[in-house]
């Protein structure tokens, strides 16, 4: 089960990120994870929240361009070598990663969570699951 990530277009000028977090704050939207991809001319903020659909609509209503992108969320032990072990499986399954970011915390302090964007989410999910990797669902995220 993949997770829906929100991707938000940000104009490259001071204050645009703050404008977005302001909207999220005003609507009490709690971010589980976030990352920012930037180029010379614009940025894309990527967010993982509990209710992606309602958050994306809120952003659109506030004149942001936002879309949903399926990503894979995977739990790993928060210890040295934790990510490396997981990437061995990616390697074996020949899954190419477009981008990745991490978050930790939640109720379980012993775990970290990785978000992966891959070209073919469904195929990657099948390959990784067959090798024993547990892919988190949207509910799992909400329960972290």
């Amino acid at each position: 089960m993949s997770v829906q990530q929100i991707s938000v277009f940000l104009e490259n000028k001071p204050g645009t990120l703050k404008k977005m977090t302001g909207v999220l704050a005003a609507h009490s939207i709690d971010m589980r994870a976030t990352s920012l991809a930037e180029t010379k001319d614009f940025g894309i903020a990527r967010l993982i929240v509990d209710d992606a659909l309602s958050a994306v609509n809120t952003l659109k209503e506030n004149n942001f361009i936002a879309s949903l992108t399926p990503v894979l969320a995977i739990e790993i032990p928060d210890e040295a070598g934790g990510l490396d072990k997981l990437l061995v499986v990616f390697d074996e399954a020949a899954v190419n990663i477009e981008y990745m970011y991490a978050f930790s915390g939640g109720k379980d302090a012993n775990h970290a969570y990785m978000i992966f964007r891959v070209a073919d989410t469904k195929a990657a999910e099948a390959k990784l699951t067959s090798k024993g990797v547990k892919i988190l669902s949207q509910e799992d995220i909400a329960n972290i």
Binding site: I44, R46, I65, R117
Partner: peptide, 11 residues
Amino acid sequence: EMTPEMFTDNV
């Protein structure tokens, strides 16, 4: 102005 149609998550 960016439009929803012209936006993708892919930089």
